[in-house]
Design a protein around this nucleic acid. Sequence first.
DNA 1: TGAATAGTGTCTTTCAGACAATATGCC
DNA 2: GGCATATTGTCTGAAAGACACTATTCA
Lengths: 222, 222
Amino acid sequence: MIKTSEALHQAGITLRVIVFTIEDEQLKVIVTKRTTDPFKGFYNLPGGFIRKTESLEQASMRTIAELTGESDVYSEQLYTFGDPDRDSNGWWITVAYFALLPQDKNGTAAYRNDPACIALPIEKLPKLAFDHSSMVEYAVARLQAKIQYSTIAQGLLPEKFRLTSLQRIYEIILAKKLDKRNFRKKIASLKLLEALNEKEIVGRHRPATLYKFKTKEQVIFG
Amino acid sequence: MIKTSEALHQAGITLRVIVFTIEDEQLKVIVTKRTTDPFKGFYNLPGGFIRKTESLEQASMRTIAELTGESDVYSEQLYTFGDPDRDSNGWWITVAYFALLPQDKNGTAAYRNDPACIALPIEKLPKLAFDHSSMVEYAVARLQAKIQYSTIAQGLLPEKFRLTSLQRIYEIILAKKLDKRNFRKKIASLKLLEALNEKEIVGRHRPATLYKFKTKEQVIFG
DNA sequence: TGAATAGTGTCTTTCAGACAATATGCC
DNA sequence: GGCATATTGTCTGAAAGACACTATTCA
């Protein structure tokens, strides 16, 4: 049926990671500027190759660690992109992963390892190289969907955080205001957080109780 | 950083399809029996290769069409499996798609093209070759999740169907009984179906109104 | 004491779930 | 008329959404 010359037994296969973080009250994605053609001067998503001895999961974690210096971030497989015209430079299949980089307690993104990387806000993101704009779009949709029925927001927060910070994560990702009382009622009913005997004092006002998630694992609460 | 000898620029890449259908009031998946080693005698998922001129989507649709004779079934990308030890026969990355084969009006599965294929019930499925059992598990989980907030059940039904048939689809996939009045109330509130001026008479009892989906596209109803 | 954020409760509406009797067509 | 499936409504409890005031700390 299939002529061997036509069949793509041996495809070039690459990995791309969509790393989100929240900085300056904005959802941002990490990109690098291309210095070679095609798409010279455009931003693209950081990527890497898969070693023969590692799983896709491991390859994505390694790539993210090389990029951010963080080896324990949340990540999951997003989608595999394989349109024949997505890269003029040959036939490439790209497995995309998305990941979340936590804020530190000051609300800025955690340390980033690679100086060529820059975090750009999702709003007003320029057109990216190849089909990377679609990948980001797809990842944002996944993130928006998943934050509503899982504890994925944990990946964007430091270990200890204020309820207000958690609410801001939701507001930024869903791009809408939430009612403070309803939000806290909902969070409390899920019983996934633990109040700590610690307060955080940020300004000249009442200090906030710090919370942490009872478990590090992602919880789905359908 | 990455030594070329270690990096997997050129992976063998294959496609596998998990085709579900409902037959004899059971959720079944289409498999074929292997005639060669490894896993000779085991069942495995039907698969294929990707041509250089087609997208992954197109390759999966083509594979499903070759298999079932149906060229317009519902399908979506499931997951990409790439563990280095998943196939002893070299390094293979497999992009898995899942698809739904509609019943015909008699409640049996639609025509199948490939005589080597057999549909086995999900309950009491034997261990499959390679990591195909995990793939089926993953696909079942996706199907169970998705039927609850989308019109994916449409893919398992003929164009015109009774509300009772729709309810049976839900009951079989979710493996639990549903209340008829609550089910119909819910379906009605979604306003996604259109009652036809046709009745279906199956036995010596009151005939049922036939319905169809207003649109062929999948609808997500959060 | 003023500024700024933390923390809290009620009412209304909507949706899910339990539950059973009547209707209709064929034989 | 008997059989078999189709069709329909109410009540209750839970969760979502609208809505505003008091508490606490520091400068």
